[in-house]
Amino acid sequence: MITPHTLNRALMILLMTVATLWLVIPFTMAILWSFVDPAAPWTPDHLLPPVMSAYRWEFMWENSLLKPALLNSYTLAPLAALVTFVIAMPTAFALGRYEFRGKEIAKIAALLPLVVPTFVTAIFFTSILYQIGLAQYRFSAILFAHTVLFLPYAIRIMSVSFEQVRQDHINAARDLGASAWAVFRVAYWPALKPGVLATLLIVFIKSVEEFAIAYIVGQPGFVTVPTLVYASLGQDFNRPNAAVLSLILAVPNVILMLFLERLLKSANPALSSGKG
């Protein structure tokens, strides 16, 4: 008879194989390709690239738009995180601490940016920018759009954090004569802290990853890491170069995501990661 135990073991082995096929092999291939030296192309008759060097990495660093793209992406992201956080705070506070008519409607309205396809948002946002003549301020326009687009995440996480502030802690602190600042520190901050970090991190990651807005609003000339990688997959597809860029986009984000996952779990097990 097949016991659940042996069944599970068989399934585990099957799954590990599948996981290897769908994660390990693709990434190994990408890493290997990024180290192919142009002196000797990697032909199908070789299991590993014949000559490996960091040439491609240096070349991309020196001779592509990588530097401006990194600069753009990594200035946009922290700014978007901060601005989104600040704008989300009052709404999150209201949703988390107050009971009012129309609260459910407000919660649904907060999800609007997730429901309208981003590509539609991107294209008609540029249309608006042209109409009001602000199309040349690409950086600010993208920052603004990112802020609105990622508000749902910030509002959701922060309002749950505010819900978790316990009224009896606040009352106890006030009963013992605490000042407003002391009440904040002792009752609010401990409940809010993981949420604050999670919000900043999730908006940061989303902004670094965001493609549609950056691609449409940024045309022509404004590059971010995702638009650069996208471009490298286009007409002049060069596999080693694309491999380098893909890894530059993927690796830091995976690390940040792992960190975020942990943070969200500690903040609120029910939330866990949103959509990647």
Binding site: L15, M16, A19, W22, L23, I25, P26, F27, M29, A30, W33, E209, F211, P226, V229, Y230, L233, F237, R239, A242, A243, S246, L249, A250, N253, V254, M257, L258, S273, K275, G276
Partner: peptide
């Protein structure tokens, strides 16, 4: 392991796939 693709950017995923 199964949830890992959530963390991988769509464009990167496209590249990995093309490569394979």
């Amino acid at each position: 392991l199964l949830k890992a693709p959530l963390m991988i950017h769509g464009i990167v995923a496209a590249f990995l796939f093309l490569n394979i």
